[in-house]
Design a protein around this nucleic acid. Structure first.
Length: 694
DNA sequence: GTTTAGGGTTGG
C-alpha cells in the first residue's frame, strides 16, 4: 500500500499521483477504469485459479482477501495523456491515405453477402466539416461489422483507406480495420458497441462522441435522416423504419414470410387478412379482439427471408425501409382496385438500407418500447396487453409456458398485475404477478438451506463440517467411564430404546434389532467421520458424551440425531434434562427450510421477493432431502437454471405465473416494511411434465 | 495484405 507514484517509462504521466481505492469502494473504482488506464493492484493474494482448465485463462488469480487490499487507478491518465489515435476530419481526406475517422451515420445498410469471401456493409457518415462520405466495409464475420441501429449513431473507424471513386472521396476498410459504434442520443450513456474484447476507449473518445452528438443535434442531422414511424403514424405508400416486437411468424412460400409484430400503438388503417396454414405458424395462430387491432402483418421477401427464419418469437426488431401498401383486389371484369386494407412489405434487395436487425434488450429503443404501457396509464387495456409477454397470448403458447414453467395451486382467481402496480397497491394480501427471474441469492444453493425453530421462530445457519468435527472431538476428550443411567439399563420401552453403547458415546436405536453391549465396553469416542460411518449401519444414532460421570447430549449446535445421511438438529427446550430427553427427547426439533431471495422483473419494474414458506412446494422437494440427497440438490439447481439460465446459454428466461403474499414486517416499533413471499406456486420442469394442455 | 461493392425502391 505504499505505492502512490509509479514510474512509467516513456510516459508523460509518470509523475501523476495514483488515486487510492479501499476495498469497500473497489467496485465503484473499477467502474471508472478505462482501457489503457494504468492500475496498481496491491495487497492481493496470488491463488491458483480453480477454473483455469475450463476457461483456459491464466493459471493464477489475484484474490481480494484482506482489508489491506488496494487498487490504485491512475485516473488522470486519460485526460492528460495525448490521444492514442489521431482522427482526420472528413474534409481532409486524401486519396490512398490510411486514416482513422469519427462520424455521424446518415445512411447504412445491414451487412450483405458479397460475391467475394466477405460480408459487405455500406454506409455514409458526416462530421462538422459537413462532408458526406460513403464507406464500404468488408469483414468475413457478421459480428465485426458496425453495429449501427439507426441514423444518428456515432461511429469510429480505424484503419480505413481514402479512395477516389466516381468523382468523390470514399472510405474502405483496410488491413487491421476496426469499428466501434455508439448511440447518438445527447445525454445518453457513451457505451461502445464492438465485437472485440479489447479495444481502445478513453476520455478522448468519450468527449469526441459527445461533441458529435451535440453537433448532430444542432444541425438537425437526425431529423432529416430518421425514418422511424410508429404503427399509429403509418400512411399508405410510405417507406419507414419500424421498431417492434415479433409475436408470430409463418412461411408463405419460398420467397416470402409473414411476420406478426406490434409496437404498442394502433395503426389507424384496417389490416388486410393474410391467410396462412395454422400448422406452419410459430407463435400464436390468432389474436382476439383488442389484441388483434394492435398487430401488424409484415410480408418479408427474397433475401430477407433467410434473416427472418432466424428470428425468435418475442425478439425486439428494427425493420428498415418497410413499406405500407394498400391491398389491391381484382374483381372479374373490373380494373384492379386498391382497398383501404393495409399490409406491410419488406421488399427484396438492400437498397435504401432495407433489412431487419435484432435489437439487444439493453438498447434504449427497446427500453422505450417496453415502457410504452407504463407511459400511457390511461389505457388500462393497452397496459394489460403490452405487459403480457407474447408467450401468454394464446392457448397454444399458454400450454408451452405452463408446462415448462409453473403452476399455481391457489384457489383464488385474481387477475395478474404488473410489478409496478403491485408496488403501488395496498400491502397485505395475496396477488398474482407474471414475471421473469432476474437474479437470486444465495447463488451457492447449499447456502439457502437453514434451520428453523418453530417454537421461537428463529432461523440459524447449518454449522459447517469443520465446526461439527470440533464439537465431536471436544466431546470425547473425556473418556473416563461413567455411570449407566437407570434408563439405559431399564431399556425404556416408551422410547423403544434398544441399543446402547457404553460407556459414553452412543445410543443407537433400531426398530428391528436389540444389541445391548454389542460394541466394546470401553472406547475413547467417535469422531464425526466415524459417526457418519456408523450412521450407515444403524437406523438412528444419538451421539452422547460423559459429563462429570453422567451421560449427556453433545453441544446442541451439533446434530442430536443421525438417521442415515440425514442429520437432525435441535434447540434446548426449557425443561431440558437428560431424563426428560429420554421421555420426550427434550429437544425442539429444528426444521430444515430453504430460504432464498429472488429478484423478479417484468416490463414495468423489479421486485425482491422471498421464497421460504412454500419453497418446498416451489421446488417439489423437501428441505430435509436437500440436506441429505444429491437428487434433491440437483432438482433445486435444475429449477434455478431453468428460471435463470446461465449467462453463456442461449436459453431465454421463462415467464412465471406467481402467487405472492405481501406482508408487513416491523423493523423497529412503528417502522414497517412490506415484504413479499412466493406462495402456492410449483415450478414444473420439462422432465416432470406429463400432462397435456389442460 | 487479394477480392468483394461502389446507397437511391418492380412487386409479390
Amino acid at each position: 500500500c505504499s505505492v502512490h507514484f509509479v514510474q512509467q517509462q516513456n510516459s508523460v504521466c509518470s509523475s501523476h499521483p495514483f488515486h487510492p481505492c479501499q476495498t469497500a469502494d473497489w467496485i465503484c473504482c473499477l467502474s471508472c477504469v478505462f482501457l489503457q488506464d494504468v492500475v496498481v493492484v496491491s495487497g492481493f493474494t496470488v491463488g491458483k485459479s480453480p477454473t483455469a482448465k475450463s476457461d483456459k485463462r491464466h493459471p493464477f488469480n489475484l484474490l481480494l482477501t484482506s482489508d489491506q487490499a488496494c487498487i490504485y487507478v491512475n485516473i488522470v491518465t486519460s485526460v492528460t495523456c495525448p490521444p492514442k489515435h489521431t482522427y482526420v476530419k472528413l474534409s481532409d481526406l486524401k486519396a490512398e491515405e490510411l486514416v482513422n475517422v469519427y462520424g455521424v451515420v446518415v445512411f447504412f445498410k445491414q451487412p450483405f453477402k458479397s460475391y467475394g469471401t466477405d460480408y459487405c456493409s455500406s454506409l455514409k457518415i458526416t462530421d462538422e466539416s459537413n462532408q458526406k462520405i460513403v464507406c464500404t466495409i468488408f469483414c468475413r464475420e457478421m459480428d465485426d461489422h458496425p453495429k449501427i441501429f439507426q441514423n444518428g449513431d456515432i461511429i469510429r473507424l480505424h484503419r480505413v483507406k481514402a479512395k477516389w471513386f466516381n468523382g468523390s472521396m470514399t472510405l474502405s476498410s483496410n488491413v487491421g480495420f476496426s469499428v466501434v459504434t455508439f448511440d447518438g442520443a445527447v445525454g445518453g450513456a457513451v457505451e461502445p458497441r464492438s465485437s472485440r474484447k479489447f479495444f481502445s476507449f478513453d476520455e478522448h473518445d468519450r468527449r469526441r462522441v459527445e461533441e458529435l452528438r451535440s453537433w448532430a443535434v444542432s444541425q438537425d442531422v437526425c431529423s432529416t435522416v430518421s425514418a422511424a414511424v410508429p404503427l399509429s403514424g403509418v400512411q399508405p405508400k410510405v417507406y419507414f423504419d419500424l421498431t417492434c416486437q415479433l409475436l408470430a411468424k409463418a412461411p408463405i412460400d419460398t420467397t416470402c414470410m409473414l411476420l406478426r409484430v406490434w409496437d404498442g400503438t394502433k395503426c389507424p388503417y384496417t389490416q388486410s387478412d393474410v391467410t396462412i396454414d395454422p400448422d406452419t405458424i410459430e407463435g400464436p395462430a390468432s389474436f382476439s379482439g383488442t389484441k388483434k387491432s394492435f398487430i401488424a402483418n409484415i410480408l418479408v421477401f427474397d433475401n430477407h427471408v433467410v434473416c427472418a427464419k432466424q428470428l425468435k418469437i418475442g425478439a425486439f426488431l428494427r425493420i428498415y425501409n418497410l413499406r405500407a401498401v394498400c391491398e389491391s383486389v381484382k374483381e372479374p371484369g373490373l380494373l384492379r382496385m386498391d382497398t383501404d386494407h393495409l399490409v406491410f412489405q419488406l421488399n427484396g434487395g438492400t437498397s435504401f438500407g432495407k433489412g431487419i436487425r435484432v435489437l439487444p434488450e439493453s438498447s434504449p429503443d427497446v427500453q422505450k418500447l417496453k415502457r410504452f404501457g407504463k407511459d400511457e396509464p390511461s389505457d388500462s387495456e393497452m397496459l394489460e396487453i403490452w405487459s403480457t409477454p407474447p408467450e401468454f397470448l394464446s392457448k397454444k403458447t399458454l400450454f408451452l409456458s405452463v408446462s415448462f414453467c409453473c403452476s399455481r395451486s391457489c384457489s383464488h382467481q385474481i387477475q395478474p398485475m404488473t410489478l409496478s402496480q403491485l408496488k403501488q397497491s395496498q400491502p397485505e394480501g395475496e396477488y398474482h404477478v407474471r414475471a421473469q427471474l432476474r437474479s437470486y441469492q444465495p447463488h451457492r444453493l447449499h447456502q439457502s438451506l437453514k434451520l428453523f425453530c418453530s417454537n421461537c421462530s428463529s432461523m440459524q445457519e447449518i454449522p459447517n463440517e469443520e465446526v461439527l468435527s470440533g464439537i465431536f472431538s471436544a466431546a470425547f476428550q473425556d473418556s473416563t467411564p461413567c455411570r449407566h443411567p437407570p434408563w439405559i439399563l431399564s431399556g425404556h420401552k416408551s422410547m423403544d430404546l434398544t441399543n446402547v453403547m457404553n460407556p459414553s458415546t452412543f445410543i443407537t436405536h433400531s426398530h428391528t434389532h436389540t444389541h445391548i453391549s454389542s460394541l466394546p465396553a470401553t472406547f475413547a469416542g467417535f469422531s464425526l467421520e466415524e459417526t457418519c460411518m456408523l450412521a450407515a449401519h444403524y437406523e438412528n444414532i444419538v451421539p452422547l458424551t460423559s459429563s462429570g460421570g453422567d451421560l449427556d447430549l453433545l453441544d446442541l449446535s451439533a446434530p442430536f440425531l443421525f438417521r442415515g445421511k440425514k442429520r437432525y438438529y435441535g434447540s434446548e427446550s426449557e425443561t431440558f434434562n437428560i431424563n426428560n430427553f429420554i421421555m420426550n427427547l427434550g429437544i425442539q426439533l429444528l426444521q430444515y427450510v430453504l430460504l432464498m431471495r429472488l429478484k423478479l422483473q417484468d416490463s414495468t419494474d423489479t421486485l425482491d421477493v422471498f421464497l421460504w414458506k412454500d419453497a418446498e412446494k416451489f421446488f417439489g422437494v423437501s428441505a430435509e432431502d436437500v440436506s441429505a440427497t444429491e437428487e434433491a440438490q440437483e432438482r433445486v439447481q435444475k429449477v434455478m437454471d431453468l428460471l435463470c439460465p446461465p449467462e453463456d446459454s442461449q436459453d431465454q428466461r421463462p415467464w412465471l405465473d406467481l402467487c405472492l403474499m405481501a406482508y408487513a414486517v416491523e423493523d423497529e416499533p412503528g417502522q414497517s416494511q412490506t415484504c413479499y413471499q412466493i406462495i402456492n406456486t410449483t415450478i414444473i420442469t420439462p422432465s416432470t411434465t406429463q400432462s397435456g394442455p389442460d
